[in-house]
Write a protein that binds this DNA or RNA. Structure first.
Length: 321
RNA sequence: GGGUCGGUAGCUCAGUCGGUAGAGCAUCGGACUGAAAAUCCGAGUGUCGACAGUUCAAUUCUGUCCUGACCCA
């Protein structure tokens, strides 16, 4: 016989169970996540690299106040656009939120389209140094002066293992590899291989939402038009008025960078909307590639809410067995 | 009605002094460990308007037709 005290102990020591809703942009993750959260008396932990920013609402397709009123959302509106943020900050804060929810006995639904953030949350990141702005500025200067070949030559001479993996044109990864080597003395490749995203702090059901490509693209275009109608351009103007520079990372995001140019008068509005639609399609394609490579994902038709709920119920139900 | 210039990839076009063709964008595929809506890599997907003639061989030359733009009436 099991006493209730023992049950409680088992429950407290077992890993938190997570429903993770993933898929390309505009496939309907928000609605599915809300439905699942209601099912399990849960709350939502967003896994979206843009929705973390305050004041960026329309362009990031953030859940509306009404939607956020239905179910509590975490990891949304947690930093200003001029604050540093990263996959590591995400991991730390999302894990804290999950620990909290688990203690409260709440259900937990992770939902988002940022593959790296989900991977970091579920598997960890190698224990390396964060961004070193001074170092990055100095490499940016080298890049400016000598171009990508010059930067890559430095990597080749200092870390041939990393150079073998990183493409000469990929300046972002070249800089990161140099940064890690300089700050730790150990090749980034070695540290990544040792780590291998091997942490398993959670018990997870990965729910992938799929949709026929033409329909997905239609939804992306319709949603872009809707964003414009809702005042996306005005939102960008507001951000600039608040003093957030167009050089900030989040202001380089899809849509924001085009609309900044419209406001600067260097891009035609119609052209900008076309560009946003096109690049959002490309973005969805990259997400599909990322998630498609994950063999742990169970895929569902985005519209088949019943089947998703049934599978989630089975996964969560095992908890009480 | 006459004339000129066009019709080649989904789009805009280049090209072949006759040996079945290639750029940009679109599209498709891939990578991704502290910027990830970022960054980067790869692939041409084609009745060369139609029919006929010349030719070993025609998308290319010739003719007719269809079609678009412009000019003259």
């Amino acid at each position: 016989m099991h006493g209730s005290g023992q049950d409680k102990m088992i429950r407290e020591t077992e890993k938190p169970r997570l429903l993770v809703v993933m898929g390309p942009t505009a496939v309907g993750k928000t609605g599915t996540a809300i439905a699942l959260a209601k099912l399990c008396n849960g709350e939502i932990v967003s896994a979206d690299s843009m929705q973390v920013y305050r004041h960026m609402d329309i362009g990031t397709a953030k859940p509306t106040p009404a939607e956020q009123g239905l179910v509590h959302h975490h990891l949304i509106d947690i930093v200003d656009p001029d604050e540093a943020f990263s996959a590591a900050s995400y991991m730390e804060r999302a894990r804290a939120a999950i620990t909290d929810l688990h203690r409260q006995g709440k259900g937990i639904v992770v939902a988002g389209g940022t593959g790296l953030y989900i991977r970091a949350l579920l598997g960890g990141l190698f224990d390396g140094p964060g961004a070193d702005e001074a170092l990055r500025r100095s490499y940016a200067a080298i890049l400016e002066r000598e171009g990508k070949p010059g930067l890559y030559e430095i990597l080749k001479s200092k870390d041939s293992r990393a150079a073998a993996i990183i493409h000469p044109n990929d300046a972002a990864r070249t800089v990161r590899a140099l940064e890690v080597l300089e700050l730790t003395g150990v090749s980034i490749v070695e540290q990544q291989q040792d780590h291998g995203f091997a942490q398993r702090p959670y018990s997870v059901l990965k729910i992938g939402l799929r949709m026929e490509r033409p329909l997905l693209y239609e939804r992306i275009e319709a949603r872009t038009d809707q964003m414009m109608a809702q005042g996306f351009l005005e939102e960008v103007q507001r951000l600039l008025d608040m003093g957030f520079s167009e050089d900030l990372k989040p202001m380089q995001a899809l849509g924001y960078r085009q609309l900044v140019r419209v406001l600067r008068g260097t891009l035609d509005l119609e052209e900008a909307v076309r560009s946003i639609k096109r690049e959002t399609r490309h973005y969805a394609k990259r997400q599909l590639t990322w998630f498609g490579a994950d063999p742990e994902i169970s895929w569902f038709d985005a519209g088949d809410r019943e089947e998703i709920v049934r599978s989630a119920g089975r996964f969560l139900g095992e908890k009480s067995l």
